[in-house]
Design a protein around this nucleic acid. Structure first.
Lengths: 346, 346
DNA sequence: CTGAAAGCGCTTACAG
DNA sequence: CTGAAAGCGCTTACAG
């Protein structure tokens, strides 16, 4: 319960030097002699001194804090992103302040106000959109924002996504080539650009082969909703022979319904494909054909877009779109002659 | 790119009052007249003023920041905890600064130093242990620490866990009652108190029925390791008829190996039980019998233990141990006459 | 290279 | 209830 909090002044006294000297020793690039450094460091370690980051922030204006707004960690994709982003940022001397948001926006604005109260150097919005009011404020405050896995029309912000249109299209090509004719789609939350782009790409792909959507449901990126959509879609006699579910998280729920509740064979009766390639997709129980969102690359791009703005004052927003490969597994019938690839198990 | 950052002084000038008056309006409980409040608030909203939390922190010594050290978000249990903890803390006006640690300690100390640089009001260590050196420092700095899902002997800290011993024991009772006779165990990381307590309870339970462990492997709480342990354990002719895997996360990997690779029937050939009751455990594909770690209650206790120390200066550490119920599903043979319970699906 | 001094944006006694 | 002033722990011109 001691609040000892040793300050630079304590160290200065101990070392018999000025407080500014102590500060310089702990400021990379400041001009201090070796002997001064040694003396100060000795006193500092004796006392267990560490500079107060907050005090430094007040002066430099740099907190080395990055606000991360994230929601719905049930979807394995997000914990993965959080882990990688946080680790990557830590390595570069930044730290992540987390804010849980509700899935369907709404309170994002309040949450962002709170973030800004902490003088964060930058903000990552993972899978959430942002009001134009807040956009103004961030702009006004000169605080860099990167939209992760969202590419809204707000062109003042940097965005990092996979190429969702191309991914959707590749899945259509694959399903059509596999001989499917009654191809359905279970959508994510309609407000999301990822949802729209995946669907647009998928439809474009079908159209290129002279097909169109056989059925459509909406899962809102939630397992419950997706399960419900699947039940409805497969209720009658005339059921799809393939379904693209807008992300893996929902696709797992759909698989459970098709196999567990409806007793359908996958892929004998119906093929299922997803999007993301989260870890579970590779497990034998799901063995899901999907598009991989290259999370490492996406996180890397996010970090560099952010730090470019923070450290180099880069002002024009980057809009990064990363290609995601089709990962072929067992949940969808393969086109005749499709080369088998090995794949990681558990 | 504007660095407008409007300060209390700007608001004061605009409103024609003193800077202290502005400060008081934004300090809950300070004495200000209604008219002063109105005037200041008007000016503040016009200017878009919000108090700088960091400046406040420097004076009050309270950052309203909680450091969370966490590792290995692959295990669904942790994202769930992160989400709940963060949400709960946000509601009480605190925010979470995240630090990713490596599974097997090691760098925890460095990470904690970094945390303390931000003057956090408290620290939650999720599933990691802490060196006694660091313990000293936290104590010296008077900063409250709660160990979540770990109960090391460091009795100067609060701990929150489920009753791992009782849980292990309940599983032993259940398996023995189910008529299993060759009962195995796949351990988590041996350094973890959760691992030790679960195993001790399990062994005690077996012993009470005159049984002992038929086989033992080590999974280190990692899927790869657990899968490997399962392969070895089930390699010969004389295989177990039941296995308790020290957490659900590993149990899923074991299930994949038993069913997918070895073609064993679960529970016909072998029963599998886990620990945690993460969401996946309830899905039809796994349908895992397990002990529920009551995450809501555990998070609640963590928050209250922490805030008790922060806000009320409670000094004696609490050691909370919460009962976790046995959740019976289909992955293990049930004792004769066991009452069926409904259970949530996907 | 080093020290004395100003100031980051606030809160909080201290007077009135 | 309100204002002037000190001070939280630092960084950074400014002199020397």
């Amino acid at each position: 319960m001691a609040r000892d909090n040793v300050t630079s002044l304590d160290v200065a006294r101990r070392a018999g030097v000025s407080q500014s000297a102590v500060s310089r020793v702990f400021t990379p690039g400041a001009s201090v002699s070796q002997s001064m450094t040694d003396r100060v460091l000795a006193a500092a370690t004796e006392l267990g001194y560490r500079p107060n980051v907050l005090a430094r922030t007040m002066i430099t204006g740099k907190s080395r804090l990055i606000g991360l707004v994230i929601a719905y960690l049930d979807n394995q994709f997000y914990p993965e992103i959080l882990e990688k982003l946080s680790t990557s940022l830590q390595q570069r001397g930044y730290h992540v302040l987390v804010f849980m948001a509700q899935q369907t926006a709404g309170n994002i604005d309040d949450v962002l106000e709170e973030i800004m109260d902490y003088q964060v150097d930058g903000i990552v919005l993972a899978s959430v959109a942002m009001s134009s009011v807040l956009a103004e404020r961030c702009d006004a405050a000169g605080i860099p924002v990167v939209l992760f896995n969202r590419a809204e029309q707000q062109d003042r912000f940097s965005t990092v996504t996979s190429d969702n249109f191309a991914g959707g299209r590749a899945l259509a090509d694959f399903l059509v080539a596999g001989g499917h004719r009654r191809i359905a789609y279970i959508a994510g939350w309609e407000g999301a650009s990822t949802q729209r782009d995946r669907e647009a790409g998928f439809r474009a792909g079908l159209a290129a082969h002279g097909c169109e959507l056989f059925a459509r449901g909406v899962g809102d990126f939630l397992t419950e909703q997706a399960a419900k959509a699947a039940r409805e879609m497969f209720a009658g006699d005339d059921i799809p022979d393939a379904v693209f579910v807008a992300n893996d998280h929902m696709a797992f729920a759909v698989l459970e319904v098709l196999r567990g509740e409806l007793g359908l064979g996958v892929p004998e009766d119906v093929s299922v494909v997803g999007y993301d390639d989260v870890q579970l997709a590779g497990w034998p129980s799901f063995d899901l054909t999907t598009i991989r969102q290259p999370s490492n690359a996406m996180v890397m791009e996010t970090v560099s877009a952010l730090l470019a703005q923070i450290e180099e004052g880069a002002s024009r927003p980057q809009r990064v779109k990363i290609d995601g490969p089709l990962v072929v597994r067992g949940s969808a019938r393969r086109p005749y002659g499709w080369k088998e690839d090995g794949d990681e198990g558990v």
